[in-house]
Design a protein around this nucleic acid. Structure first.
Length: 132
DNA sequence: GTTGTGACATCGC
DNA sequence: CGCGATGCCACAA
């Protein structure tokens, strides 16, 4: 396979962590969503960024800082990605503890729990997922 | 210096 | 709906 890295992985990671920190408990965000929110670094082709940014986010999350709720970041399929050494069950458990419900396929309803940061255009009444 | 390996998303069949 | 291929590079052993 092949991975790529942003010009400034550190800065990019910092932005990713910032976004992840803004995710409230009981909500989940996808890598692609985060990647889409973050602006592509200068000198990077938008098309290339579109394809590679998700991996950059994944790589950034792989660093797993202690102050970042990595558990609330899942893939676009609404499923938790298996982390080496921890097992997917742990993440599911953590999310369930926050009120996130998994279906039979171990997937999360992004329509309900998928959260996006308050955009300037949108009022701060994102969604009211019926917890419980 | 070479080899292998990395929390993803999207399109096509 | 599931599986496979493609996008691209840096770091560690």
């Amino acid at each position: 396979m092949a991975y790529s890295n942003p010009p400034d992985p550190k800065a990019y990671n910092a932005q990713v962590y910032e976004i992840v920190r803004q995710i409230p408990a009981g909500r989940v965000m996808t890598y692609g969503q985060i990647a889409a929110i973050l602006l592509p670094p200068a000198g990077v082709d938008p098309a290339t960024y579109a394809q590679l940014s998700p991996r950059w986010v994944g790589t950034a999350m792989a660093q797993c800082p202690d102050d970042v709720p990595w558990q609330r970041v899942i893939n676009s399929q609404g499923q938790v990605s298996p982390r080496p050494g921890f097992g997917p069950t742990v993440q599911r458990k953590l999310l369930e503890q926050e009120g996130v419900v998994f279906d039979e396929h171990e997937r999360v309803d992004l329509k309900r729990y998928g959260w996006r940061p308050r955009e300037p255009d949108e009022p701060d009444a994102p969604q009211q997922p019926t917890l419980f």
